[in-house]
Amino acid sequence: MLLFGLDLDYVLVVVLFCVGLYMLVSKSNLLKKLLGLNVMETAVFAFIVTSGMIEGGDPPILVAGTAAPYASPIPQAMVLTGIVVAVSVTAVALALIVQIHAHFGTIEVDELKELP
């Protein structure tokens, strides 16, 4: 979709990315920061999937009922990998947050900085 000659889908992806980035840098709550990171990840995945789309295309599954043109399969495979990576990063981050909470009793950066 074009708006003022700009590729609106792509621009929206960047907006989403920046929303996530803003959450990551401005929120004090570690969980919210992590959610911000997840939003950023989603934005990048959306970007990748969007880039592989094609006008009037079908999913790249060559069975009866689909027809050319097909969307490119590579971005979808990339995103699948990306999602798994994102899940793993989130898991580790959550484990760390649990650790911080168990130790300090808080997950607010403002309070953590004043502790020691």
Partner: peptide, 8 residues
């Protein structure tokens, strides 16, 4: 705690 915070 501190190590976890640094890691995070």
């Amino acid at each position: 705690g501190l190590a976890a915070f640094a890691a995070l």
